[in-house]
Design a protein around this nucleic acid. Structure first.
Lengths: 356, 356
DNA sequence: CTGTTAGCGCCTTCAT
DNA sequence: ATGAAGGCGCTAACAG
């Protein structure tokens, strides 16, 4: 089990400053006094319970208004043992993929009255453990954990520390325990891309498979191979070329692949960035897209629609990924559902100019 | 003062579920008993105070370890009146601009031991008030508020409700009170873009000014006019064309402008999306970029480097915007600084192929 | 150096 | 329909 780097020292605010805004805040006692009732009655009103007479309720409401009272979620959390807060852990919110996942997460949480803590991990397992620890101290009611880099062992400990956990883009289970998860069917993505190209008459279809270790890359490749096989095609070994998932490396990989295998009439790319690289390579080689080479990417990043020609691509439902994850989490927290549920989302082919 | 739509009902988790993970958590009392000391001593140790003997400290630390104890931030918050949590309010985290701001915010907060709540407003003032209210209930120590759509009146109330507030992209002040803010010098952006083009020999420089009501659009335009004037040039009225900030409308606006003023040799665009639209228009008109028309955008979105030709653009320091905002906020919370400080960040010209 | 006492603001249980 | 007493887990202010 890896050790988290110690959490940074908590800054202790100057008392005077804090008191300026917090010190003179009205409490439930003030409201009770102002309304001439007990704190219990105030509590009943602000929690919207029905065993309070209409007139009393109104008196309390008026007092609340007059004093500008806001119940303290902190005190409430201490008393009820649930905080109405959740954690979202992502590698990097500046990555548009996770930004959209976060949007889905936040939207559903907001709709159901929860606030969510945003934590970035920079894909660093130590940092991941660290933020997870801070969320534990904050006593969140549950967490959504995206693309965790934790070892199985660490992950098991983490899962045990929270009332509820949902994984995004990762599966995990141990004897007698399975963690809820939301996943994308990447094999299906490979299918879709190939099927579209086959349908347009292509037979010589290459594959830029991305980083060698990528799980989704492997799955997309599997879908490609299977779909080719379904029409009796066995892609040559040399038709698959790995490479880092950037435009630069995509260009380089495409140059290698297209020079050694000029017979290819279509290319499927690990993601849209790679596809953009292929566009560059083709310009260099004098091959026209889609005329001389059809191109299908993955992800549907914003730039996919902006480059020329616009990219046909396999869209991952990022927003839904987040929304579904939060839905699962909240159902679990509310006890409507037991942990271990799994949702697999299907990608969708967006047809644009690069492979019409 | 506008009314917030009522906050959604808070979901109350099923007791049994919550107890599963929270109920049997070790408390400071357990640790004290295990270590054979008082709770106060444990408190001193976990708060890293130095008035504890080394041997006692070790005994406590061992007990903490053995019991897997984690102090409750909730209980701590109630006792100390500061929670170690902050709020970040943005229009839409899926917008890459705010995603990068958020990254900067989170990074600095993390480094100083704080957790941040992420809230989206969808540019809806009602929703903005609503999330602000929820943050108030959570007793955050401060907030960073991006591109607020609130009226001055509402904003004033909001600012009074928190220990500390920093505005991004908006200035606000009242008699006797000024709110801290981080801003971008858009006038300077206009200067930079024009200066670069003048330097390359352009004189006939048009401006696609974006949405008519846009504040930053106005400022950029002012910078453009001033810089042109500085070399004795007074752009014709017709050289400035407004339009929605999308590729589609950018293309349309460029078509209008270039057909009515074919003499233009360079164009400055409200943002990169508009610039992408201009690229399309030029393709349609058979004008080459940068040969027949030089192009400068704004923002430096990821796609700016991916399109062909890659866009020369005025980069807004988004990450720094967030980082500086959080820095200001924390300094204020710690009492190192008084409210009202203002930081103006300067954009930076990124030279690429569209205006080499 | 260590312990005791008294809350922080709210909710739960049990009375009335 | 309303109220009184006690506790959630932790820390501040004082003792010793």
């Amino acid at each position: 089990v890896s050790e988290p780097t110690g959490p940074p020292d908590r800054a202790i605010p100057d008392r005077a400053i804090v008191d300026r805004a917090i010190g003179d805040r009205a409490t439930i006692v003030d409201v009770a006094r102002e309304a001439g009732v007990s704190t219990m009655t105030v509590s009943r009103v602000i929690n919207d319970r029905d065993d309070v007479s209409t007139t009393t309720r109104q008196r309390v409401l008026d007092a609340v208004e007059r004093l500008g009272y806001r119940p303290s979620g902190i005190a409430r959390g201490l008393a009820t043992r649930h905080t109405g807060t959740l954690g979202l852990v992502v590698p990097d919110i500046a990555n548009p993929f996770f930004a959209e996942v976060a949007r889905g997460v936040e939207q559903v949480a907001y709709a159901r009255g929860y606030n969510v803590f945003l934590c970035n991990t920079d894909e660093d397992p130590f940092r991941e453990l660290d933020v997870l620890g801070s969320l534990e101290e904050k006593r969140v009611d549950g967490i959504v954990l995206c693309s965790s880099r934790l070892t199985g062992e660490d992950l098991q400990m983490v899962v045990g520390a929270y009332p509820a956990v949902v994984l995004v883009n990762r599966r995990a289970s141990w004897p007698g325990q399975q963690v809820s998860a939301v996943l994308v069917d990447d094999v299906m993505g490979g299918h879709l891309a190939v099927a579209h190209l086959l349908d347009r008459g292509h037979r010589m279809i290459g594959f830029l498979s991305g980083p060698a270790g990528s799980h989704s890359g492997q799955e997309r490749l599997a879908g490609y191979v299977a779909e080719m096989a379904s029409v009796g095609l066995a892609p040559e070994q040399g038709w698959v070329e790995p490479g880092a998932p950037t435009a630069e490396q995509g260009c380089a990989a495409a140059l290698r692949l297209l020079r050694s295998h000029p017979e290819l009439t279509a290319l499927i790319c690990y993601n849209d960035l790679v596809a953009v690289g292929v566009l560059r390579a083709c310009r260099e080689l004098g091959r026209r897209v889609p005329g001389d080479l059809a191109l299908v990417g993955f992800d549907d990043i914003p730039a996919a629609a902006l480059v020329t020609p616009a990219l046909t691509t396999c869209r991952i439902p990022r927003h839904e990924l987040g929304a579904k994850a939060m839905g699962l989490l909240l159902d679990q927290i509310c006890g409507e559902t037991v942990p271990g549920g799994e949702v697999v989302l299907e990608p969708e082919l967006v047809v644009r100019a690069s492979a019409p």
